[in-house]
Nucleic acid binder design. Structure first.
Lengths: 377, 377
DNA sequence: ATCCCATCCGTAAACGTTTACAGCGGCGTG
DNA sequence: CACGCCGCTGTAAACGTTTACGGATGGGAT
């Protein structure tokens, strides 16, 4: 690990000035002979340009950060999987910040932009505080926010559409003849919690179904909490015939409880999850789930950011990603779910972002996604 | 996004030299009055030190890269989840490279170390070529490799122990009275494929069971391929009473096929997966799986790297992580699986790495892991 | 032969830090 | 009173690049 050669070393070896070395290495017009000498010296010495020095001079790092609560969350993971290859193709490296859902950490990341270790940031904050808004306004590098921001926040923004998403699910359940459709939510003081609660109300109204408090239970966005909440619901309202769950994990908890209670899914109770994570296809029965387009949101975000990195003065844009319903066995039964799968392919959220990406990438992504331990081929 | 203040700006404002500014900001002994003036100016101007310039001078970037085939692979994901918080606590940022299982890309990453944009690298290569060995020998920054390296590769190395892992599984199945234990593998020309095939043979021998070619099928490490392979097995050897699968995805495919064939799991056929990914606990019946310690390997790797970053001249170390068997319903049935779960907690691979980590982190990690869309709390 | 211009290259400054070194004033000591 | 020392600060160099500028060289036109 000896000190590597610099353009100075090369200049000495080639008997030219560092300016010539730099010119040659950057492909600026130079006399044939000089080019040869420099390239030869660089080759012999195994020269690799120092990206830090380059960054200092050029004021660009070719790095972009993605900040989210936790990379372990399948939703963010889907985003990263979209973001990474796009950045790579554009010549940027990806930096990851797991903020552990901590507001202070998020603000640190925003302030950290002043350190100029990245050219831009994609951030998916848990909740949007005043601090976020002012930190965003003062940010020293372009930021794209995934997750609805207030109007006029003056920042590129990618949004999901929980409202339409819930609506899709309830229409689907209604179409299957369900009328006692319960809603199992996460905490109401979270952005998605609030949005989904409102969406549920609206969707019921649109279907002319009554809003029944007994059919709403609030827990948290985890499997165990979901199970607990569903148990409470069943105890209170034994006649539910469908469960709308605010995310897939809650839905998995619901499946556990229903199984234990001897209720058949979907014959007795249909279950719909949300986010359409990888888990949905693995569950049994496989889980009908509302995709809020994690992958597409990731892709939209990275494209907004790259665009802004080229054109810093553009007006901020807001992109809203359309939800889709992934119909599986937990609502229509195993038999029919298979027909759906054949018809649409088991496209799912994971694959959908790949549409616009290169073929090679898509293939590799799917391979990687399913490959086992220690990496496989 | 105006040009930010530098120490020069501060120096002018405070009426001191840039050297004094630097000293104050780095906490070096300075006269009280000067300290006040500098801090005041820095505060007023909203100064943030430029990390690029700092890196150029200090020759440290405080960045570490992790290179693996695909972040979407749950095994690597588990590693990232361990690595990230440890790095963060040590003051390093994490950079992610998805190499798409491409050898050339991996070599590029190794060569890229010469650009000095990171202080160190954790790499989990798909297969180890001559090119890897020479690139590693020439690497311009410390590297830790996850995945078995040849003896004397002269690099810090973290290994799984497929042999013991398969052995654990087969002992378990044998103990349950199974004697026709088939093996569904991925491609034999991959490192894990080869290792696991050998391990299966050995384990059979140790149990005094005959090696029966009809009981071995090679497919690939994906769900659909696993399903196909298992179908072939069933067609050929209808009397199998257990399936050892070379990863969890193959095992999920096996569950699909068995269900369709009307074979009960585990009553008729017991199934064991490998890697103990998050999917194992979601499957139905929940999947007994051999944990090769993805999280623990990630943790070991990052600790080796941090250690080496402090002490570059240490002898290379090899760490081998012990496998564990996560017993679930696919071998012992639903009832008994629940008892196991209560006894050990649903610890699983995901949580295991957290042992040594701070409480706050662990809590946040679990929360994040299960939180839903748009980040929650 | 003179002048001009084009071509190529080297010198030096700049990016924003850290830090070795030297200078300066004040104080205690001989 | 001279000296030395100490505490503090400023100047300048260095990290490894890129690039503005100007100098040198040579060729062609006048």
């Amino acid at each position: 690990m000896a000190e590597g050669p610099t353009i100075n070393t090369i200049a000495r070896h080639a008997g030219v000035s560092i300016a010539s070395v730099s010119r040659v290495l950057n492909g600026l017009p130079t006399r044939e002979e000089t080019v040869r000498r420099v390239l030869r010296a660089a080759e012999e010495l195994g020269y690799v340009p120092n990206s830090v020095a380059r960054s200092l001079k050029s004021r660009r790092t070719n790095q972009v950060a993605f900040a989210m609560a936790d990379i372990g969350n399948p939703v963010y993971l889907a985003m990263v999987r979209e973001i990474q290859p796009v950045l790579r193709a554009a010549g940027y490296r990806l930096l990851l910040h797991s903020t552990d859902a901590d507001v202070a950490d998020e603000l640190d990341v925003l302030r950290g932009l002043g350190e100029r270790y990245v050219d831009g940031l994609i951030m998916s904050p848990l909740r949007v505080t005043e601090g976020h808004l002012s930190a965003l306004a003062a940010a020293r590098a372009p930021v794209v926010v995934i997750g609805s921001m207030p109007e006029g926040a003056g920042v590129d923004n990618v949004r999901a559409d929980s409202r339409t998403g819930v609506r899709l699910a309830l229409d689907h359940l209604y179409g299957l003849g369900r009328r006692r459709i319960a809603f199992v939510n996460g905490p109401a003081d979270t952005v998605p919690g609030a949005a989904r609660a409102a969406a549920y109300r609206e969707a019921l109204e649109a279907l002319d179904l009554p809003y029944d408090e007994d059919l709403v239970e609030v827990g948290d966005f985890y499997r165990a909490e979901g199970a607990r909440a569903v148990q409470a619901l069943l105890d209170r309202a034994g006649d539910v015939d469908a469960l709308m769950c605010a995310n897939d994990l809650i839905a998995l908890g619901a499946l556990d409880v229903l199984r234990r209670a001897g209720r058949r899914v979907p014959e007795d109770v249909a279950v719909v999850g949300m986010d359409d994570t990888d888990l949905a296809a693995v569950a049994w029965p496989s889980l009908t789930s509302v995709s809020l387009g994690s992958a597409r949101r990731g892709r939209a975000a990275v494209e907004l950011l790259l665009d802004r990195l080229e054109n810093g003065e553009r007006e901020p844009r807001v992109v809203t990603v359309e939800p889709r319903l992934a119909v599986r066995a937990s609502t229509v039964g195993v038999r029919e779910a298979e027909e759906y799968a054949e018809e649409y392919g088991e496209a799912g959220e994971a694959a959908e972002g790949g549409e616009a990406a290169g073929d090679a990438r898509k293939g590799a992504q799917q391979a990687g996604r399913t490959a086992g331990e220690e990496g496989i081929r």
